[in-house]
């Protein structure tokens, strides 16, 4: 739906590897996606699939060593973030690309008043004066719906509730009107009623500022309600990329299907949940073929020996699965796939 909008972020073949005593862990292993102005991209997957590492890689916040961006590029308005100097990068972080994290308490400075922390970003990036920055920071707190912002700005993080801290994080991230906001599990630590408030707030501010949002989450409910398109990650790869409507109406990859099936449904009764057998392969020892093969109900010989590519389908969905290719023997025998 945002096709006409400007392309702001393009990730191509991004690889992030960690070298440890046990070997090389390929946390992110060649992923591609794009983000347009005003668009929300969801990245979903379970623990260890590489979704958080993807977001940290974009901002070059990977702890190094042991981590390293081993390949690929991240084009932000045409410039490659991967090859930028640290100085150039610092001008982008928190200014043009901002990030909010899951646990606000660990990402805010515990001994500095929150207003001060927001003002710091403004003084640094926007070269604002002390007074102007403070006023702007109070204004930001008001924008994110914190009651009596003048008073709250002078308080330290521990004096605020979890929901309010997350609002402060959002205020800080948006203070410099970024073009891209990366939200890494922004509501996972919050209660549902507060989660609803925060998601609504992000959506509202997005329309106001027109930024692109990357929403990283494990919660498919959050994806359905906030995202325009979704990338499903599994073991460091994107296995399916589709619009939100397509993904939920017609999931193609067996992993996506399994993920959706294993959710308990709030509006219907089921006797037994459908599960995905087995568990994720170790990142140190990835199988040669499809990484989902050992858990896949449709597995064939080729799945074990060769890794499939992320292939475009006629409806615009991209899926990394042999089942949607001519190599799949099931396709030759009978018509249609499940």
């Amino acid at each position: 739906m945002n096709k006409k909008n400007k392309l702001i972020l393009e990730v191509k073949g991004l690889k992030t590897h960690f070298t440890t005593k046990r070997g090389v862990s390929k946390a992110v292993d060649g992923i591609d996606f794009t983000l347009h102005k005003g668009e929300t991209l969801g990245i979903v997957g379970e623990s260890g699939c590489g979704k958080s590492m993807t977001s940290l890689s974009i901002l070059r916040l990977i702890p190094s060593p042991p981590g390293k961006i081993a390949g690929g590029s991240v084009l932000f308005k045409g410039k490659d973030l991967v090859t930028m100097t640290e100085d150039e990068m610092r001008k982008i972080r928190g200014n043009e690309i901002s990030m909010i994290f899951q646990e606000p308490m660990t990402s805010l400075n515990p001994v500095i008043p929150v207003g001060e922390q927001i003002a710091e970003a403004l003084r640094l990036h926007q070269k604002m004066g002390k007074k102007a920055a403070w006023e702007k920071s109070v204004e930001m707190l008001k924008l994110v719906g914190i009651p009596s912002p003048e008073k709250r700005a002078k308080q330290e993080p521990f004096q605020l509730s979890g929901g309010m801290r997350q609002r402060v994080m959002i205020a800080m991230a948006l203070a410099c009107t970024p073009e891209v906001l990366i939200a890494d599990e922004p509501t996972t630590a919050l209660d549902v009623t507060i989660q609803a408030q925060i998601l609504e707030l992000i959506k509202e501010l997005q329309t106001k500022i027109g930024m692109g949002v990357i929403m990283i989450t494990h919660d498919l409910g959050v994806v359905a309600e906030t995202c325009d398109k979704v990338a499903v990650m599994y073991a460091g790869n994107i296995v399916e990329h589709a619009s939100t409507e397509q993904l939920f109406a017609n999931p193609k990859h067996p992993y996506t299907q399994g993920l959706l099936n294993s959710l308990p449904k709030i509006h219907e009764d089921q006797d037994e949940l459908i599960t995905i057998d087995g568990s994720v392969p170790s990142p140190y020892n990835m199988p040669a073929g499809c990484r989902f093969a050992s858990r896949c109900p449709y597995r064939e010989d080729i799945c074990i020996t060769h890794q499939p590519n992320l292939i475009n389908q006629s409806d615009g969905v991209k899926v990394r699965c042999w089942k949607y290719t001519d190599e799949w023997t099931g396709n030759r025998d009978k018509e249609g796939v499940i």
Binding site: D191, V192, T193, A196, Q197, A224, E225
Partner: peptide, 25 residues
């Protein structure tokens, strides 16, 4: 009612009237 309507539902076609509670506990 508010609690039930706050749950994000994994179905993008579902449109709901959401009750969003103000403030904190």
């Amino acid at each position: 009612q508010a609690l039930l309507s706050s749950i994000p539902v994994p179905d993008p076609t579902l449109k709901r009237d959401r009750v969003i509670l103000k403030g904190d506990v």
